[in-house]
Computed example of a mutant assay.
Amino acid sequence: MHWPVAFGRGDSMFPKDNNGNTINGDTDFVDTWKAMEKTFKKGKAKAIGISNFSRKETERLLKETEVVPAAHQIELHPYLQQNEACAWFRSKGIHVQQYSPFGNQNEVYSKGQNMGKLIDDPTLVEVGKKYNKNGAQVALAWGIAQGHSVLPKSKTPSRIKDNLEGDFRLEQADLEKLKGVDKQMRFNDPSANFGWNFYIDEDGKVA
């Protein structure tokens, strides 16, 4: 099961069985996209996009459909920079949106719980001191510097305020430093839950 989406994601939108397990469908994602194209062409949606597609899957989508996705939501942060993939999506006219910009800060991810938080990484903290910012704010500024839309999530007013202060410009020398923290480490892989092998041939995919 794969999902083309406009904007918004999360397993709460999917039907569950009596045991709370996701009920997976068997509809081809190209057919789903074609239905969404009809909605777009009728003016009922200003934009339609995708989430968690690999380049190979996106190539098929572009080949077999008409409307280029406006945006692509993928896990992106300094530990999973995916520079080659992001450049490829941009070359196709697809804007990249970052979810999980703080990496393993999200408690629902099983991977990364037994390691230090990305936002406490010494390099991020060091760079942040130069700008009087914290590691989380540096992670947001890194994403903005890549030309991405960055999607932090918080319910805490103080953290929401901090996130808004992550909109600042990092100097090139600091961006070069941050390149060095890339671990190609993916924290979110819902393949087992959704019955679809996500991220084939993409950075951070664990077989």
Rank of each mutant, 00 (worst) to 15 (best):
Gly20Ala: 10
Ala47Arg: 14
Gln105Met: 03
Leu61Arg: 08
Asp17Phe: 01
Glu66Met: 00
Ala136Met: 00
Ser54Met: 01
Ser51Asn: 09
Thr123Val: 15
Gly103Tyr: 01
Asp121Arg: 04
Gly116His: 07
Gly103Trp: 03
Lys46Glu: 12
Glu107His: 01
Gln82Asp: 12
Asn104Val: 01
Thr22Asp: 07
Arg60Ile: 03
Cys86Ile: 15
Asn18Phe: 02
Gln137Pro: 10
Asn83Cys: 11
Thr58Pro: 13
Cys86Ala: 15
Gly25Lys: 06
Leu124Gly: 10
Val30Ser: 08
Gly112Ser: 06
Cys86Lys: 15
Glu66Thr: 13
Thr65Val: 00
Ser91Ala: 09
Tyr79Gly: 11
Asp28Glu: 07
Met36His: 02
Leu118Ile: 09
Arg60Phe: 05
Gly43Ser: 10
Val127Asn: 07
Val127Lys: 07
Thr58Lys: 08
Gly135Trp: 01
Thr58Gly: 08
Lys111Arg: 14
Val108Tyr: 13
Glu37Val: 01
Asp28Gly: 11
His72Trp: 04
Ala70Asn: 12
Gly49Asp: 07
Glu57Met: 10
Glu107Gln: 12
Lys133Gly: 02
Lys46Asn: 15
Pro78Gly: 02
Arg60Asp: 05
Leu80Lys: 07
Thr65Tyr: 04
Asp121Ile: 06
Ala70Tyr: 08
Asp28Ile: 02
Gln81Lys: 13
Ala87Trp: 10
Asp17Ser: 01
Tyr109His: 15
Lys117Asn: 05
Leu62Pro: 14
Val30Glu: 03
Thr27Phe: 13
Glu75Lys: 07
Lys117Pro: 11
Lys92Met: 08
Ile23Gln: 09
Asn134Arg: 03
Ala71Val: 11
Gly112Tyr: 04
Asn52Met: 04
